[in-house]
Design a protein around this nucleic acid. Structure first.
Lengths: 146, 146
DNA sequence: CCTTGACCTTCCCATGATTGGAAGCCCTAT
DNA sequence: ATAGGGCTTCCAATCATGGGAAGGTCAAGG
């Protein structure tokens, strides 16, 4: 199976498959005589594993740990569970930060007439010196595009 | 005021102040005879504005719009409100995605014994082919570090 | 046999916000 | 005068991903 088919079958783009191989997340694929990467169904399964883990918000580093556990037949399920719950904790933290932002923004927007006049408590708050409603932590759970 | 003091007073690091200036988010600062950037209290206020907006998860592009409105004395508060509510919408979308992830992970972890034995429904799910609980969208509201 | 188009290869670049570091200049206090 | 800290610019790295160029390969059809 070539990389394109493996990509389609796993849901991981060919670009990303090469990247994962390069960074050591997945082992180097075999090569055809012409130098094309070849994939077995087992490797496609591993790629699907990675994809699914990414969909659940795991970092690539975390996925490496998960893959190691996956391969380790003498693993303890406790280790897997710990990783999953730690992920939950991280997600919850981010969610809380964003909910704080939402609360602040909605409070400010609620006080804003939203008409043709320039006066706006949103801008007033951003200027500072006014009352803070839900001070968000400086870690910033931003809104990154990616 | 030098850049270091402006950084301390605004909560924006000197590095970021230079970056914001370079990318045009904020106007170029004045310079002392020796070439040091100098900041007035008005400029520090603008930096605080930027910092606060970042804390609320706004993109730099969005902050540029907010700053433009801030400076525009004939602005309509409706425009500001629209930006704020659009930001709320974006945050809510991310929150929903992450909540889906949390639900899935908790469901999987709940079925995992978490003991010394290797059997684990979390890994089984990641392998694929098993029942999906809360299929997350492929846009990925990851867990990015920044 | 040769061409065409789809696929593959490697390599480089860009994203967004931020941090780190190096090399060199400036200012203040001792 | 010298030490230290702060300032300058420039360059690089982060993380996961996509875009694209330049060139090799494969299968099908003329």
């Amino acid at each position: 199976m070539n990389i394109g088919e493996a990509a389609k079958a796993s849901g991981v783009s060919a670009k990303m498959i090469r990247y994962y191989e390069q960074t050591g997340l997945i082992p180097e694929a075999g090569r055809s005589a012409a130098g094309y990467r070849t994939y077995t169904t087992t490797e496609v399964q591993m790629l699907r594993f990675v994809r699914r883990a990414r969909d659940l918000g795991f970092t690539v580093d975390r996925i490496a740990e998960l893959l190691a556990l996956w391969r380790d037949r003498s693993r303890h399920s406790a280790d897997v569970k710990r990783l999953a719950l730690s992920q939950v904790e991280g997600l919850r933290r981010k969610i809380r930060e964003m909910e704080d932002m939402v609360a602040t923004l909605e409070h400010l927007a609620h006080g804003c007439n939203g008409d043709h006049r320039p006066d706006c408590p949103i801008l007033a708050d951003l200027e500072g010196e006014t009352s803070r409603v839900a001070q968000t932590s400086p870690t910033g759970a931003g809104f990154g595009r990616h």
